[in-house]
Amino acid sequence: MSAAGRLAERSHEENWLPILELAIQEVFEIMLGCQVKPVAPSEHKTNAEFTAMVGLAGALCGILTVRCDANTARLIATHMLGDAAGSEEQAADALGEICNMITGNFKNKLAGTDEQCMLSVPSIISGGEYTFRSLADGVSIETALLYEGASIFVRLQLHS
């Protein structure tokens, strides 16, 4: 079996989607004091005005992205900082840190992966006019969550 096949099999066998959703929910509950709940991605569309990304290397190779509109990113910053939030820079910074914590929390929940997987520092794209293409075979796990009435999309793209 190819490396891509083994990765797909492991993600399927271990059912990584609920693990990813739990990792997201914990980050929002602990750091923002807010509950988020998974929704069908097709039910909610959003203008992906901010995309935060964290790369993984080692036992898992790939990228985790968190996308939302600008108002939602600002709301996240406000919840994290209280009254101090406001600027676009803080919104981007807050979303990057959320992405970082989701990636780390997910990695820490996977048995045997944590010790052998490194994370990059977060990067943030402002603006939604882009197309994401991965040139490597792999597995993609995506979920949408409802946060204060707005959608947040989280996607884990893993390479073999």
Binding site: M80, A94, V121
Partner: peptide, 12 residues
């Protein structure tokens, strides 16, 4: 911390 938001959260 490279995140200014996180620095403020830690201070708080």
């Amino acid at each position: 911390d490279d995140s200014s938001v996180m620095r403020k959260i830690v201070e708080r």
